[in-house]
Amino acid sequence: MLRYLPALALVVALPAWGQNLTFGGMRADTSAPVEIAADALAVNQSDGTAVFTGNVVIGQGAMRLSAGRVDVTYAEGGTTRIRSLRAEGDVTLVSGDDAAEAQEALYDVEAGQVTLIGDVILAQGGNVLTGQRMEVDLATGAARVEGRVRTILQPGQQGGGN
C-alpha cells in the first residue's frame, strides 16, 4: 500500500508567506485591444472613469475576465486607453486551460499585472490551488499566491494539465 502513496492526490497547506508558480496559459498580449461587454455603462467624463455593470466580460487577446461590476480608469487624454480595471462580484479570469476565481480583481493594464483578492481558487488541469491573494505578471505568466495557500495536486499532472 505504501508504494502507491506518491500516486495519491496530495493536499499541502503552505505558510501564509506564499507560493510562486507559473500560471501556465496566463500570458496576455498587453498591447492588444481591451474589449468590454456589459448590460449597462455609466461614464464620468470629468474624472475619466466608467462603470460597467451586469454580466461584464472583458477580453484582451486570449484572456477573459468576467464579473458583476467593473470600474474602469482611463489614461490621460480621454477614453481611448484604459489605465486600470477593478472587477468585483463573481470574478473569473481565464487564459488557456487555466482558470481562477476571486471576490475582486485589479488589472493594471499599463503594467500588465493582475491581482486577484479574496478566496482565490486557481484550477490548472486537475490541480487546484487556493489562497487569499494572487498576483500574475501577464508578460511572463509568473504568479505568486499568498494567504494560507493550499494545493491539491493530481498524480501524473503538471500545471496546465500537461
Rank of each mutant, 00 (worst) to 15 (best):
G125I: 12
A16T: 14
T30H: 00
T115R: 11
T130M: 09
A123C: 13
G160Y: 11
L138E: 02
V56P: 01
P155V: 09
L5N: 11
I82P: 08
T53F: 04
A13M: 07
G161C: 11
T49L: 05
L41Q: 07
R86A: 00
G25L: 04
W17R: 14
D98Y: 10
V56Y: 02
L106C: 00
I82W: 09
G112I: 05
F52Y: 11
A7F: 14
L2C: 08
A28G: 14
R144V: 08
L116S: 00
A28P: 08
L129R: 06
Q45A: 13
Q157L: 11
E146H: 05
G118F: 10
P6M: 06
L153R: 15
V94N: 00
G24T: 12
D71V: 09
A16I: 10
G147P: 04
G78S: 00
V43N: 09
R148F: 15
R81I: 08
Q158D: 15
G48V: 04
D90R: 14
A62T: 06
I152D: 14
E104R: 06
S66H: 00
Q154I: 01
P15I: 10
T92V: 12
E104I: 03
M26L: 06
L138G: 10
G48Q: 03
D90G: 02
A16M: 07
A38Q: 06
P6A: 01
